[in-house]
Write a protein that binds this DNA or RNA. Structure first.
Lengths: 203, 203
DNA sequence: CGCCAATCCTTGACGCCGTTAATTTAACGT
DNA sequence: ACGTTAAATTAACGGCGTCAAGGATTGGCG
């Protein structure tokens, strides 16, 4: 009795393509102006077709956010490749976090703004979020293990995260242009937080 | 030749009332679901009336943001009243900033997220923004003058701002619930940034 | 007093949106 | 070949932002 059935692969293909196009639309027009119908047009299908693959517009947002998380984690890991000195890895991570917020502003916005994750958020999204977090946590843990930083790792990682995140978001909101450029801000923040957690006996 | 003319006061009254109601709607349903027509209904007027007083929906957003800035500045100032010890004023300011982001989440979101200010943003908004900033700057400057903190005031103020802002926004995005509560995060951040800018010769 | 003209507000319309129901199209098993 | 059934399209509904047109309303002037 089965007649035309889509392969799981085909389904996943469509979803992936849709996410990619949606992300590009976010980049082009901001996620506020994102339109299901524009996505469908760009995809070359009817405006109701996406409903077979996503749970409406919120479903697409969730899917794109999950993809954004993955990109974020990959981006951070890639930037860290090749550097082995723990404290330098901390600085590189901070720089990568900030750069991502600029170069991939759409993805960054989707991840952190755009309202909190819906209750029906797919597990893949939370998982990807934990992945990005684990990169940050790992880099801090290494630095503490190596004696380059002092403190409770979890607290330190969260503080570092919030500090960098603050610089990135303020810059994104273009509230930071009051006489200081963002790069200098990032350096100041990183230096301050590293200095604050210096092992005792150094300036 | 003039016939029925609205007093400037009446116009300002309407604008103020509209802003107030709009803010409440933001609180109730989030600014994403905010609707001009719902505002009009709540105001008891026709759905086109607001167009006489605001430049469409973006105009209302701008007006509400300006009001949010004013509230923010007032909130910070009020919390600072009564405290005179410079370094304590820094801590109180941080706490006030964070509390505002929680207690007045709608206003906070309107100010800092919701896309950057439009190019035609009224001067009152930028002015109010500068006002809130000047509170922060002033508190930091006092602390530096009193010798409780060391560093270039502008850099220090920006760093402090970004750090607190990061804690507030991460908390708002409910990304902070990973084993640490937000209050502890705020304290960690404040302490770290104060420690990092301690005058030389102290732990 | 009665009209005029300027102002305010409402009504109605347009196009676009998200979403769902009905309908058409296409591919397999028999 | 054909009925069955998944997939996609089309059509429709209500609601949105926005704007043009048309009623109210009111003060000044003859």
């Amino acid at each position: 009795m089965g007649r035309p059935v889509l392969t799981d692969e085909q389904v996943e293909d469509f979803r992936a393509r849709a996410c990619e196009v949606a992300m590009q639309l976010f980049v082009d027009e901001g996620y506020e102006g994102f339109t299901l119908r524009a996505l469908a047009k760009e995809l070359g299908c009817s405006h109701a077709t996406p409903y077979r693959y996503f749970a409406g517009k919120p479903g697409i947002f969730a899917a794109v956010r999950a993809q954004g998380f993955v990109r974020f984690g990959s981006f951070l890991r890639q930037r860290l490749e090749g550097e082995t000195v723990p404290i330098e890895r901390v600085r590189i991570l901070a720089r990568a976090y900030f750069d991502f917020s600029v170069e991939q502003a759409a993805a960054f916005t989707i991840i952190f703004e755009m309202g909190q994750p819906l209750p029906d958020e797919p597990e893949t999204s939370r998982e990807a979020g934990r992945d990005a977090w684990s990169v940050l946590y790992g880099v801090i843990a290494e630095a503490v293990d190596a004696g380059a930083l002092e403190g409770e790792v979890n607290e330190l990682a969260h503080t570092m995260w919030a500090g960098i995140h603050g610089v990135a978001t303020l810059h994104l909101a273009s509230k930071l242009a009051m006489g200081r450029d963002a790069e200098a801000m990032l350096t100041s923040m990183t230096d301050a937080l590293i200095r604050a957690h210096q092992p005792r006996g150094k300036s």
